[in-house]
Each structure stands twice: as C-alpha cells, then as structure tokens.
Write a protein that binds this DNA or RNA. Structure first.
Length: 464
RNA sequence: GGCGGGUUGGCGGAGAGGUUACGCAGCGGAUUGCAAAUCCGUGAAGACCGGUUCGAUUCCGGUACCCGCCUCCA
C-alpha cells in the first residue's frame, strides 16, 4: 500500500500518515459560514481537501473514508442579513428568515463547488442541528472546571489547558503581550474565549442553562466532529487563517471535554489565496466569487486546474494568465483523451500526491505522460485529480457547426491559386475565418476547419 | 510588538546534497504556397553574506525584502 506523507501542523513536520483505523479513515474540514456566495479564497481548501479525500479513497478504498465538512449557520453576519430582510418587509420570523438565507447560501455553495469538481463530503452537518451537543459539551467543561458561566456568557478558561497555544506556536503570555483581544470585564483572563453568549430579541437563540443564547464560534466544530467522528480521528483541515484562534480553541475544548481522546492526529492547513499578486479584498477591488468567474465563462475545471498548479502550503496567486494556460492544456488533453478508455492512474502521479499532496508535481507527471502519448494513463490519473471528468467537459467540446461549405470554397480557391500562383483570395478567406475564431489547417492531404475557443458564428455568417 | 511562512531561469512552478523537473513564452528545424496546428531540438535559475562538505540552489547561521495570522473578509 502507498504510504501517504502529510505535513502535520501539530509537529511542523512531514510525517507518514498512519490512520487509527484503516477501514474507516476519518477527516474533518472546517466549512463555510453560509451568509453569502463563496469567494475564490473559500474554494481553495475545498479543492485541496477534495484531492486528499480522493487520494484517501484511492488508497484505502471507496467505502473506508469518512469525510465531514460543516456548514456554520449560526453567525452574526447571517443574523444581520436576516434582520435587514425583516426590516425591508420580508414576511416571516427572524428564525425563518435566517433559515431561508442559510438554505439559499448552501444551495449556491453546492452548485459552485460542484462546478469545481469537488465531491460532496459524506456528512455536511449544520451547526444549528447540533446545539444540544454544544450545550452538553459546554456543561461538561463547566463541571470539570475548564469553563465558567458569568453574566449569561460561558467562557473557556484558557489557563486550565496547559497545551494551549501549541498548535500555533504561541504561549498565552505571548498572546497577551500582543494584546488584541476583546477586553471584557467578566473575563478571568483576557484570552478566555466564548463558548456561549446571550442573545437579544433580534438575535437567534436557544434555551440553555445560562438563559436564551447561542454558541460561540469554535464549539460547533468540537461538538460536530465528536458526534460524527469520535473522540479521536485522523485528519483535521482548514485554511491557515483558522489555525489561530479557531483550531487552537477547538483543540482546547475537545481535549478538555474528552480527556481520553486525542482529537485530531494530523492537522493540515492550506495557505491563502492572492489575486494578481495581492491579497483579495473588497477594499482593493479585486474581490470576486467563484460564481463571478463561472459567469465570465471560466469553466470550473479550469479554476480547479489553476488551484492544483500550486502546492497547497504555498500562497496561490490567481492570475488571468494562469487561467489561460490551464484552459489551453485542458483543451489539448481533453481532445486527445476523448476517445480513450482510462487505464490505471500513473504511479508517478500517485507518488506525487502521496508526497504531501504535491499536485503541481502530479500535473508535471501528467505532462510527461502526454509527451509519451500515454493518454490512457493520463486520463485515469487526471480523473483521480478530479480533472477530465466527462461531466465537467462540456465547455471544451467544439461548437456543432457545419463548415463544409467554407471548407469546399477554400479547397476550390486554393486549387485555383496553385495554378495561378496568386494566393490573395485564399489568404483573404483564411484571414476572415481566423477572425471568426476558426482554426484553419491546410496540408497536402486537404483542408480542415475547426471551430476554436473564440469561435464567433456571427462573424462566420458575414462571410456568406 | 508576538508567532509563522516565503525569496528558483522571461513568466508560472516542483523535487533532490552531486546526474534533464515540468508547463507557458522565446529561439532553431521539419512540415506548409504562406501560415496555423503538430513533431523534433535548444539556450536560460536558485535574493545577499558567511559556515558545514570533496561538492549546496538543496543542510546550518545571519542580512535584506515580501507575505500571512494575532482584527469572526478562508
């Protein structure tokens, strides 16, 4: 069996991956807060961990992997949007409006991530469906002295967990020195974080031993991963930005609530996304969603390919030039493999992926296979990477147009030109065809006209 | 201020202590009436300064610059 090696944020080293139970490899990835369309940065962890999910299934077997990715549907941004709708006169209770907003966003998310070729996880739990577990976990943490209730809040006592800060490499004292934490008079320690907070009438809330309220952000992942994957599981993933404080707090809560488990064995963090060399942000005006790109006609498969060009632990720069290259490569490969039956994935590709998800190396191996004409191997390997899937390829198929009249005309003109040595008429027609996005292939054997990516039927019409 | 990461040829982007990454672009050739497409070939790198070593772009230290998180935009 192939040994997968992964860089574990917990140890800061590349380690051999040894699952707790190879008949049920368990992975939890932090999913989106569902208040709006997923932006391009949201899509990176989705693709990264989709590749890992596919690799694990390839190595351990389709039925031997459990992949969980949550939806955070309790959040102040969602509340704000629901409240805005209510004030705008949309009928329904606040809870109903919140639910409507999250359902709508989840449907968008599914559609957009499906377009990127990401397989749906085995479980996609929603925070609102696990409030009971969160309350129970919070109660347990209070009982064991790791949390305290005060003024309707429940706070986690950071000093009660000796390894707090280990994942992100900081000590509690370091963090306080940096001191950009919310100062609240009821906190025992400035670093203590919220497990439960009170809700006003304009916020969604659930009954609890501490009054009507809602959970803090971090507790949901601890509760849901425990419920679905157990006290100890194999892999926990997410964006690097989540390492602190989100994952640090998850570890503290879970370790203290379940002292006999050891939570996640391997922590994986993908680096951030940039756009044309800069951080994507609304203020820089380079902020866009996955749907924006799809609507511009950039296929999801092309977006996926661009993501795979960069190793997941390096910052990835989204550029138009990369999209252009990715599209050209995919067109070539799709054309070459259209009629080919996939064989088995290439060893070179599996080895690259097994080496800490080296997707760039895997793509290079695909290029090598293309150079050798091993299209069957290329196809099988590409499918493992979530590329060249038949269902994703409609964008690359040539427009169904009849160019036989133009072809014949060009043949006639060329035949005449061969005799007269005056090629001006041939060149004129050829130039017009090229302008219309038609590729002109002339050889001794004949002439072939192929509609290309920029094919424009209107310009062709003008030639008639 | 604290913590972490990065700096590879024109561009993108990997691995490996010594032997070709790979792709795009470029250049040369084949092919073509000329092109396109295709095929063949090819030049080009490792921020800077030290150290370890027979040998470092690859290991160690320092400098410069860039980036991320600590501010619920992943």
């Amino acid at each position: 069996m192939v040994t997968i090696r992964l860089t574990n944020s917990k140890t800061r080293r590349k380690e051999d991956f040894r699952p707790i139970d190879s008949s049920n490899v368990r992975m939890y990835v932090c999913g989106p807060t569902v208040y709006d369309r997923a932006h391009l940065g949201n899509a990176r962890p989705v693709v990264v961990f989709d590749v890992l999910n596919r690799l694990l299934r390839h190595v351990y077997g389709e039925g031997h992997v459990t992949y969980v990715r949550n939806f955070t549907d309790v959040d102040d941004k969602i509340n704000a949007e629901a409240l805005r709708r209510q004030k705008a006169g949309v009928p329904g209770t606040l809870e109903e409006l919140i639910h409507g907003r999250t359902e709508e966003t989840i449907a968008w998310y599914h559609a957009d991530m499906d377009a990127l070729g990401a397989l749906r996880p085995d479980h996609e739990p929603r925070a609102t469906e696990y409030i009971g577990q969160m309350v129970a976990m919070t109660q347990g943490l209070i009982a064991s002295g790791h949390a305290y209730a005060v003024e309707g809040h429940v706070l986690f006592r950071v000093r009660s967990y000796k390894d707090y800060g280990k994942l992100s490499g900081r000590s509690v004292d370091d963090m306080i020195a940096g001191a950009r934490v919310e100062v609240a008079p009821y906190k025992e320690d400035p670093m203590d974080f919220v497990l439960w907070k009170p809700s006003s009438g304009e916020e969604p809330g659930w009954d609890s031993p501490w009054g009507k309220g809602r959970p803090g952000w971090h507790i949901e992942c601890s509760a849901m991963s425990h419920e679905l994957l157990g006290e100890s599981f194999d892999i926990h993933g997410g964006g690097l930005d989540l390492q602190f404080p989100h994952h640090e707090n998850e570890i503290a809560q879970s370790a203290c609530a379940h002292p006999h488990g050891d939570f996640a064995h391997y922590w994986l963090h993908n680096e951030m996304l940039q756009v044309e060399g800069k951080k994507m942000s609304k203020s820089l005006g380079n902020f866009f969603t996955v749907r924006d790109l799809l609507d511009q006609g950039i296929p999801g498969e092309v977006i996926r390919f661009v993501f795979l060009m960069t190793h997941y632990r390096s910052p990835m720069d989204w550029t138009a030039e990369k999209a252009r290259q990715a599209e050209a490569t995919l067109r070539k490969w799709r054309a070459a493999t259209a009629e080919v039956a996939a064989s088995a994935p290439l060893v070179s590709v599996i080895e690259a992926l097994a080496d800490d998800l080296n997707t760039a190396g895997a793509l290079a191996a695909l290029h090598v296979a293309a150079g050798e004409g091993d299209w069957a191997g290329l196809k099988a390997s590409a499918v493992l990477l979530g590329l060249l899937e038949p269902a994703m390829g409609s964008w690359s198929s040539a427009p169904d147009v009849d160019l036989s009249a133009q072809t014949q005309r060009l043949i006639d003109l060329r035949a005449a030109a061969m005799a007269s040595k005056d090629f001006s008429a041939v060149d004129a027609l050829k130039a017009a065809l090229v302008t219309a996005g038609v590729e002109v292939r002339m050889s001794k054997a004949g002439i072939e006209l192929v509609p290309g990516p920029d094919f424009d039927p209107a310009k062709l019409e003008a030639l008639q």
